[in-house]
């Protein structure tokens, strides 16, 4: 799975730290998701969706391996 959270974050002009605080996780979590090392739970994905005001599948996308 790949994602464009970094891009979405740039649109909102917020740092990893600010995004993390807004959805109640640590900065490491956001960093790991951005680097495709961690696949977040549906709850977290929906929180991100609310934050970015976009449907989940706009910034999360399945890849060949999935």
């Amino acid at each position: 799975m790949k994602n464009t959270i970094k891009v979405q974050r740039a649109i909102l002009d917020i740092t990893q730290e600010e995004l993390a605080k807004a959805i109640g996780v640590s900065r490491q979590t956001i960093n790991s998701i951005e680097k495709n090392r961690y696949v977040p739970s549906t709850v977290l994905a929906l929180k991100l969706s609310k934050m970015f005001n976009q449907p989940v599948n706009v910034f999360f996308e399945l890849t060949e391996e999935d």
Partner: peptide, 9 residues
């Protein structure tokens, strides 16, 4: 717990 204990931790 960690300082911030989330699903990733």
């Amino acid at each position: 717990k960690e300082k911030i204990e989330d699903e990733y931790v």
